[in-house]
């Protein structure tokens, strides 16, 4: 693995290797604290994303490495009209690895095609965000002890949420995984996701609008935000918004070992009262995200 642009480029063995490294980091972080001594990560963020950038930077610091970061896209040479290709060639002379976020789809691929150092896609518009999906996989793997034989509920905006599509594609690799897709009719999973992934691989899935009705079946509940701007009219939004807010009452019939995930940031779709429930994993997911990025950096830099 030289670059990571799209999680679909990773084989199941590659993913397992990343999970194994991550598990070992969790067990003995000190062992890894000097692995990247003398190495530099350049975080090229052409749009703001504080959490992802800080997660990458924290990951590199915890490996003993250093970070080069540009203040903002507005102050970068991109604002002067420099191409992604030229930026990638230039930064290759300063750093050992690049983490790039860009509003345009495919920008990190262009960087990877031109850089002489590994490029990790830290999000390209609404297209790919592979490190979020890897963080989700590590969370499920650590919390459930497996990635197969489970029922995953995905709830909220399943139409526009790229994390949802990417997680479905990634989890569809594992055997006996059933998906329950919970959303308002307006925000159902796009037909190409159903056709190209679920139906093509003959994977069991159910579509529903009723979160509470399917709650007892779920091993994992992946919540996403229903955003007001996705609706054509406010009336529909107001009618539907509370149906997809997770409250302690809605968890009454849930399994005792359910794992609740959310890619964050949360607005109001998970009641704060749930934060102390042992089934809430969304802040642990942030921690796992950092560990997974450490694993990725180690593998990309081949310093294991």
């Amino acid at each position: 693995m030289k670059h990571l642009i799209d999680i679909q480029e990773l084989s199941t063995n590659d993913i397992q290797e990343l999970l194994d490294i991550a598990e070992d980091i969790l067990k003995d972080p000190v062992k890894y604290s000097e692995k990247c001594r003398g190495k530099k990560l350049a975080t090229l963020f052409f749009e703001p994303s504080t959490r992802t950038r800080l997660s990458f930077e924290a990951a590199m610091y915890e490996l003993g490495g250093n970070v080069l970061s540009m203040a903002s896209a507005a102050s970068s040479s991109a604002a002067k009209g420099e191409s992604i290709a030229d930026t990638a060639k230039t930064i290759s002379n300063y750093a050992d690895i690049i983490a790039m976020r860009h509003p345009k789809e495919g920008a990190p691929l262009v960087a990877a095609m031109n850089a002489t150092i590994p490029v990790i896609n830290a999000g390209d518009g609404g297209h790919n965000h592979p490190t979020q999906t890897l963080a989700d996989l590590l969370t499920i793997y650590c919390e459930k002890g497996r990635l197969d034989n489970m029922t995953i509920g995905l709830c909220g905006d399943l139409k526009f949420g790229r994390t949802v599509h990417s997680l479905i594609a990634a989890m569809a690799r594992y055997s006996n995984v059933k998906f329950i897709l919970i959303s308002p009719v307006e925000l159902k999973v796009p037909s190409y996701v159903k056709k190209d992934i679920l139906q093509q691989k003959n994977i069991e899935y159910v579509q529903t609008t009723d979160l509470e009705a399917v709650m007892p079946e779920l091993d994992v509940l992946y919540m996403t935000r229903v955003q007001k701007e996705r609706f054509f009219n406010e009336e529909d939004y107001l009618r539907l918004k509370d149906s997809y807010i997770l409250t302690p009452e809605k968890l009454k019939n849930a399994k005792s070992d359910l794992s609740i995930l959310h890619p964050l940031p949360r607005v109001n779709e998970i009641a704060v009262a749930i934060d102390n429930d042992p089934r809430a994993c969304y802040f642990k997911q942030v921690y796992y995200g950092k560990i997974m990025r450490m694993s990725l950096i180690l593998k990309a830099l081949e310093v294991l």
Binding site: I84, P103, G106, A107, D124
Partner: peptide
């Protein structure tokens, strides 16, 4: 939203992803 819309010098490359249905996809944004 594709990077080719702003970076004029980039070649527009499409790859065959589904030979049966003759589907070609942009390598950058799919």
């Amino acid at each position: 939203r594709c990077i080719t819309s702003t970076e004029q010098e980039l070649p527009h490359i499409f790859r065959l992803t589904d030979p049966k249905n003759r589907v070609f996809r942009c390598i950058y944004c799919e």
